[in-house]
């Protein structure tokens, strides 16, 4: 029994039954298939995270966000006072997170590619793009670069899904994806 020592002193030499060997083989091959799927998605799949990350001082990151916002602001988001920024396709775009907002609001063109920089000014935050359901962790001191290609137009929310204190549940930002005019 499992609670007594093995009956056979040399239990390593016992033969296996066919059922066990088959199941071990199936499980092992399935493991290789899953591993291979993950690797090959980097070559054939369209949804992969880049490994592009830089160390950056939060204030320096803030300045880059400000510069982009000043240059490309088109309006304000409703009555929130948050600027809506429409940077040119292909450019570097920035969104910062801080207690408790995503800033600024971005307006992107459908089917265009952008280099999205994410970082935090204070604590960790969770970039959760809804209803797409793309979720990325945002750290202070690190600039994570995602090359994104929004392929459906509409209004998207950025919900914070990393707990960041008492106002966490009020932290919502926006990304507009519009058809090319």
């Amino acid at each position: 029994m499992a609670i007594t020592p093995p009956q056979n002193r040399l239990w390593w030499k016992e033969p296996l039954s066919g059922v066990e060997i088959t199941w071990i083989g199936v499980a092992f091959i399935w493991g290789l298939v899953m591993f291979g799927t993950m690797v090959s998605w980097h070559f054939v799949g369209k949804q992969n995270l880049s490994n592009e990350t830089y160390r950056i001082d939060p204030n320096a990151f803030g300045e880059k966000v400000e510069a982009m916002t000043e240059r490309y602001q088109v309006r304000e988001e409703g009555d929130t006072g948050v600027p809506v920024v429409r940077p040119p396709p292909g450019s570097d775009i920035y969104m910062l997170s801080r207690l408790w907002e995503w800033w600024p609001v971005l307006e992107l063109e459908k089917d265009q590619t952008y280099r999205l920089h994410l970082s935090s000014m204070d604590w960790q935050h969770g970039f959760s793009l809804q209803p797409q359901n793309i979720n990325v962790q945002v750290h202070p001191g690190y600039d994570m670069v995602l090359t994104i290609t929004p392929d459906k137009s509409g209004e998207y929310a950025v919900v914070c899904n990393e707990f960041c204190g008492i106002g966490h549940h009020t932290m919502v930002g926006k990304i507009h994806v519009v058809d090319k005019k």
């Binding site: 029994m1 007594t4 009956q7 056979n8 002193r9 040399l10 239990w11 390593w12 016992e14």
Partner: peptide
């Protein structure tokens, strides 16, 4: 229950396989 464990397989002088020694 505790007295059933004496080994029946293999002569006592037979060497314990390396993997079994690792697992022990």
């Amino acid at each position: 229950m505790s007295d059933q464990s004496t080994g029946s397989g293999g002569a006592p002088e037979e060497r314990v396989p390396a993997m079994q020694r690792l697992l022990d």
